[in-house]
Simulated scan of single mutants.
Amino acid sequence: MTLDTVNDRGLVLLGCGKMGSAMLEGWLAQGVKPGAVWVIEPSPSDWLRGTGVHLNVDLPTAPAIVLLAVKPQMMGAALPQVVALGGGKTLFLSIAAGTTIASFEATFGAATPIIRAMPNTPAAVGRGISAICGNAKASESDLRLAEALLRAVGQVVRLEGEHQMDAVTAVSGSGPAYVFHLIEALAAAGEAEGLPAPLAMQLARATVTGAGELAHRAPEAAAQLRINVTSPGGTTAAALAVLMDAETGFPPLLRRAVKAAADRGRELGK
Score class of each variant (00 low, 15 high):
244 M>I: 02
22 A>V: 08
225 L>Y: 06
77 A>D: 14
48 L>I: 08
226 R>W: 10
117 A>E: 02
84 A>Y: 02
154 G>V: 13
73 Q>A: 08
129 I>C: 07
77 A>E: 13
50 G>T: 05
95 I>R: 00
32 V>A: 10
268 L>C: 12
260 A>W: 09
181 H>C: 05
125 V>I: 13
203 L>Y: 04
232 P>T: 06
190 G>H: 06
101 I>W: 00
113 P>C: 07
53 V>R: 01
65 I>K: 00
119 P>G: 09
222 A>Y: 13
36 A>V: 04
249 G>P: 08
1 M>T: 14
32 V>P: 06
209 T>R: 12
67 L>W: 08
99 T>G: 00
246 A>Y: 01
64 A>E: 01
19 M>C: 01
197 A>N: 02
153 V>Y: 03
121 T>H: 06
54 H>G: 00
88 G>Q: 04
217 R>K: 14
239 A>S: 14
154 G>A: 12
99 T>A: 05
178 Y>A: 04
30 Q>S: 15
234 G>F: 03
214 L>D: 14
28 L>H: 07
144 R>K: 15
41 E>W: 05
232 P>I: 09
39 V>F: 03
235 T>H: 13
131 A>N: 09
227 I>T: 11
45 S>P: 05
48 L>S: 09
223 A>N: 08
173 G>N: 12
262 A>Y: 08
248 T>W: 08
211 A>M: 07
124 A>L: 13
111 A>I: 00
268 L>H: 14
221 A>G: 15
57 V>D: 11
185 A>I: 04
183 I>M: 15
104 F>Q: 08
82 V>C: 10
87 G>I: 11
226 R>T: 07
73 Q>P: 01
64 A>Q: 05
158 R>D: 04
239 A>D: 13
143 L>Y: 09
187 A>Y: 00
134 G>F: 01
103 S>L: 08
61 T>R: 15
227 I>Y: 06
223 A>R: 12
82 V>P: 03
108 F>W: 06
225 L>R: 04
68 L>P: 11
195 L>C: 09
18 K>T: 15
103 S>T: 14
78 A>F: 12
57 V>I: 10
18 K>P: 00
135 N>V: 11
37 V>Q: 03
85 L>R: 11
9 R>S: 10
216 H>D: 09
22 A>Y: 05
78 A>M: 13
103 S>Q: 14
129 I>Q: 07
238 A>M: 06
32 V>Q: 03
197 A>R: 08
210 G>Q: 02
237 A>H: 08
259 K>Q: 05
19 M>Y: 01
137 K>W: 04
18 K>W: 00
197 A>C: 02
201 M>N: 03
252 P>R: 11
216 H>I: 00
126 G>R: 02
198 P>N: 04
216 H>P: 00
71 K>N: 09
243 L>C: 13
93 L>R: 01
38 W>K: 00
142 D>R: 03
100 T>Y: 05
248 T>R: 15
115 I>P: 04
192 A>V: 12
68 L>I: 15
135 N>E: 06
29 A>S: 13
205 R>N: 03
127 R>M: 15
112 T>Q: 10
235 T>A: 14
